[in-house]
Simulated assay, not measured.
Amino acid sequence: MVILVGGMGGVLAGLAVGFGAHRCLARQRGAEAARLAAAEVRAALAPAGDLLAACLAAGAGPREAAEAVARSLDGPVADRLRQVAAELRLGGEPAAVWPRLAELPGAEGLARCMERAGISGVPAVESASRTAAALRAEQARAVVARGRRAGVLVTMPLSACFLPAFLALGVAPVLIGLASGLLGRN
């Protein structure tokens, strides 16, 4: 910036541009980290739902199922299940405890069916299995959408190269020929 603007104004402009670029990159990194964390949670929810359904089918209660699944998994879903199971073990109300699982992105349905099972004793095997299947289907749709988006993004550099070449080699000679023909007749 010192070369473009010159003097002290260039130094100040360079510092301002550098600071702005740093802030923009930091914001992008933060958003990317949050997106990756949410993707990690969503990827772990379907197996957690399957494991919860299997534990419930084997006769375990919601608290015991949450403890067993938390021991078999790692990551934020396991941590939240561990927290929920500990609160239930200490006498927490299912209606107050299971919504903590719902705070994770995509876990609302699973938390709701486990909450119903804890409150009313209704078997949650079917609803947990359906929720896990829905989570898996949503994850598959997201993968397909990312694949389609990647296909579109791959063609952008090609269009940036081929479109100017088409214009320069295909359209420009025709326009030049038409212009010279029109101008030559006058």
Rank of each mutant, 00 (worst) to 15 (best):
A60C: 11
A60N: 08
G75Q: 07
A53F: 08
L45W: 09
G59Y: 03
A53T: 04
A66I: 07
G59M: 05
A65P: 07
E64Q: 09
A68R: 12
R63M: 02
R80Q: 14
R71L: 13
L73T: 10
D74T: 15
D74W: 12
A46G: 10
A57T: 06
D74C: 14
L81H: 13
C55V: 03
G49P: 01
P62W: 11
L56D: 05
A60D: 10
D50G: 09
A68K: 08
A57E: 14
L45Y: 09
P76H: 08
D50N: 11
G75D: 12
V77H: 07
R63V: 00
A44D: 13
L73Q: 15
D79W: 03
P47H: 01
C55N: 13
A46Y: 07
P47I: 03
D79C: 12
L51V: 02
P47Y: 01
A66H: 02
D79R: 15
R63N: 00
V77K: 04
A60M: 15
L52R: 00
A54E: 14
A44C: 03
A46D: 08
G61V: 04
L51S: 05
L81I: 06
A66M: 14
R71N: 11
A68N: 02
A54L: 15
A68Y: 02
E67Y: 03
G49F: 10
D74I: 07
C55T: 04
A54V: 09
A58Y: 01
